[in-house]
Design a protein around this nucleic acid. Sequence first.
RNA 1: GGGGCUGUAGCUCAGCUGGUUAGAGUGCCGGUCUGUCACACCGGAGGUCGCGGGUUCGAGCCCCGUCAGCCCCGCCA
Length: 587
Amino acid sequence: MTRTTLRTHRCGALRTEHIGQRVRLGGWVNRRRDLGGIVFLDLRDRDGIVQVAVGPGWASADTLALAQTAASEAVLTVEGEVVARPTAMRNAELATGDVEVHATSLKVVGPAETPAIPVARGKGEELPAEELRLKYRHLDLRRPELQANLILRHRLLQRARRALSELDFLEIETPILTKPTPEGARDYLVPSRVHAGECYALPQSPQIYKQLLMVSGFDRYFQIARCFRDEDLRFDRQPEFSQIDIEASFVTQEDVIGFVEHVLVALWDEAGHTIPRSFARLTWREALERYGTDKPDLRYDFPIVDWTTQVQPLAVPFFQNTTNGSRVRGIAVRGGGTLSRKDVDQLTATAKTHGAPGLAWVKRQGEQLSGSVGKHFTAEALGRLGVGDGDVALITVGPDRVTSPALDKVRQEVIRRLAPAPKLAHAFCWVVDFPLFEPDPETGKPVFAHHPFTAPHPEDVRKLDSEPFACRALHYDAVYNGHELGSGSIRITDPAVQRTVFRHLGLAPAEIEARFGFLLTALAAGAPPHGGFAVGFDRTAMLIAGAGSLRDVIAFPKTTAARALFEGAPAPARPEDLAALHIKVVP
RNA sequence: GGGGCUGUAGCUCAGCUGGUUAGAGUGCCGGUCUGUCACACCGGAGGUCGCGGGUUCGAGCCCCGUCAGCCCCGCCA
């Protein structure tokens, strides 16, 4: 199957079953070992590495001379015979290590200059700086690790397509040149040459299009959708990324959750992991209460607990400012007695950098109590907090919006330092019942927590105006080991409700018609109940591959400053191009 | 927009309290070598100490600014 005019096999595919065959190979010189009379070349392709031996018993003097000068990373074609290695010469570290190829002829078809960064690395040798790896991406991508990541990514994509096709979903493409959105992330704009002063926007997601497809009756849609958001980046955020985008009609939240579980289980299966269904489920409120985050890592315990009433009688000064909704919350760290004073100090620093006033702590070793608030406690009082012998309690105080994120970070840090065995290797869960609104950090006014097409929970619709923050949404997130894999919702299908929601966003009626008229018109044309989901595919691939960054599962990623170091994008536009686009750059 | 870390040979790094001619490993070049697999051994070349300014008798090292990469906060409906 891999045979072409120029080669018969891939290098990395040769095994003992090929012994005796004459083969032609093509590959890159991974390493050369020149012993004088005999030369060994490690030839590499995407399947792996095979040793090519060039010796006087079978190769001409010219071939031997050529092998002696073959440069690292040059492309060679090799013709020769697959032979068994003598027992003592086998290499158990190579998949092809029981055989080698005795080359009878050899050709440098792609000479190579000395590579700017090494492809073949010695054991324990560090990777080149990421800046160089991105600049010389064509070399970095030759590394077996990155090849494996991209090959896995391919298989995951194919598996997602297959899984969804089996569920009768149709793959339909939507535009890349689309319309700016009023809310959410900043758009990448594409100026129109034909229409002076007008712009397309690259989609942040195909949200409206997939809803239109439901209105059109396609029933079940999916797409591996490229999405673009002009926001600052992180190790797990790139300006352009791929989503497994799903939408289905005549569904409830349970149907969508079922579809998504089916896809996720298939993806993990593709990587050899068997994931039981159904996934754990907790409400957004529970998640924040117990873990301080809407994407809890359920591989580990160490839940956050409310100790406000238990510590009240102890008259600890630090815990006294429990006015207007503040609570005393903390984590009973089982086995936390092994945390050093320095560990606790660093945990305190973590809590403070995330807004907490500080971190009180009590450690119990036998009857011995120690820690910043140790003198206020008795063993019995600690027992009421669930803190036993050898444990430590980490405690803070404040309103939930302060203590939740701080204790989330503290919990993560505790897990990192204690490195307990996880209860599960793959902890999936659904977080449901998200709030429809959240307070604007500046004004305190309600703003949409998800996107403005998310349907309110039917039980809470009457609270839309009176108690907006008590209003739940039909919005759900899939979470894996503390990472958000994606989110989805049931959509608003009543154009009147959709108009009300836009008004809540502060949009004037004329603006609503201008921006979303096409959606409202569609909803009024007979819209089936529908909902969907989007899986962040790059992030999923990163997690399944065990990669440390999105950049390791994307062939040509951007830096954290959104630059492409390989091709050098973005680049200054030529004046004539700007003129054609009716653009003047203001310095 | 803010904070932190890093930047010295092609690559990975060391460089003491500011003090002689900036080192190592690897790669590269030349040589020896017929069973290596990070081959071994001998020899050699290779430096804008990110960039700009300042302090100092003297700066890789101290100060200010700046650029780049990475990580974090804000941001990411």
